[in-house]
């Protein structure tokens, strides 16, 4: 808070007031001390965008439009969908860089310092795998790279105008796409939450130095729910069971290199050349269409 100073006699005080106003404006523009938009409330996923990937799930062998490297492709080609039947994986949450793409009830609330009323953090409960995350807004640094990793990672946020920008590190290894494309624990996630009335645009920029050659950018929309979410809408009871009676304990379903029989189904079904379905940064850009030849059937 700026204090009004007693002006020397004979001074108009105008230069001092102008300087104070400029300082105030500069501070406000550079680092807003307060939320520019209230995101609190109940939100739900809207699935008009990328619905086939987000609900039924992507085809095996569909890496089109993803900036993956050859190591990520090798990982995915060895991946067997029944990996999800392993007890250790049945209740495994999506990582924060992926979880908002799935079925979603989201409750957001802010935490304020009771003395100063400054916003210390923004919290969110996510119904998908019942995950809770905290976005620290008090300027604290990220921990050492050796600190523990979690599904939701460690997040800090700041306001850019009306957009909440969040930076998240310390995320457990998971996947970029639900067909086995890996996401490493070195991933840096930048999120942008942009509220337009009852709709929130949510943009993720994922940088993964292990498995991506360029940042992976996705957008998703959320709709505001004026009614509070019931407990049942936020709970995700999950208890792992033996799904395959004859699967030995400790077995990890997989394919050895070159033996995955399902990789070509997506290519054949949609009449796409293999060079496209195998992904890579070049498949993200419109110029890639020039490289496509007749569909390989």
């Amino acid at each position: 808070m700026l204090r009004r100073r007693r002006q020397p006699s004979g001074s108009t005080g105008r230069p001092a007031r102008t300087a104070a106003l400029l300082v105030t404006l500069a501070l406000g523009a550079a680092s807003p001390a307060f939320a520019q938009m209230d995101l609190s409330g109940s939100w739900q996923g809207i699935f008009h965008e990328d619905q086939p990937e987000r609900i039924p799930g992507p085809w095996l062998g569909d890496y089109l439009g993803l900036p993956i490297n050859e190591h990520a492709r090798a990982f995915a080609e060895a991946w067997e969908p029944s990996r999800l039947t392993v007890p250790e994986h049945q209740c495994r949450a999506h990582s924060v860089a992926y979880i908002y793409r799935g079925p979603l009830n989201l409750r957001i609330w802010e935490e304020r310092d009771p003395i100063t009323q400054e916003i210390v953090a923004i919290h969110a409960d996510n119904s998908n795998f019942q995950q809770r995350r905290t976005i620290w807004m008090d300027g604290r640094p990220h921990p050492s790279e050796h600190a523990g990793h979690t599904w939701m990672g460690f997040s800090t946020g700041r306001w850019e105008g009306d957009t909440l920008v969040v930076r998240t590190t310390h995320i457990k290894q998971m996947w970029h796409r639900r067909n086995g494309l890996p996401q490493s624990d070195k991933t840096l996630l930048t999120e942008r939450f942009i509220r337009h009335g009852d709709v929130m645009t949510y943009i993720t920029i994922v940088e993964d130095p292990v498995y991506l050659t360029e940042p992976l950018v996705k957008s998703t929309n959320l709709g505001f729910n004026p009614r509070p979410l019931t407990p049942q809408q936020l709970l995700y009871p999950c208890q792992s069971v033996v799904e395959l009676a004859d699967q030995p304990r400790g077995a990890v379903p997989h394919y050895l290199p070159g033996q995955n029989p399902f990789l070509g189904e997506f290519r054949v079904e949609f009449g796409l050349p293999e060079v496209a379905t195998r992904g890579g940064a070049e498949t993200m850009y419109p110029e890639f269409r020039k490289r496509l030849s007749a569909p390989a059937r």
Partner: peptide, 25 residues
């Protein structure tokens, strides 16, 4: 039966690069 070991010698295993997907990490 379709995914049982197909490699015999150490050289064959090395040539298959079984750690390729985790090498950059």
């Amino acid at each position: 039966d379709a995914t049982k070991n197909v490699w015999e010698t150490l050289d064959e295993v090395k040539a298959a690069r079984p750690t390729f997907d985790f090498d950059p990490r």
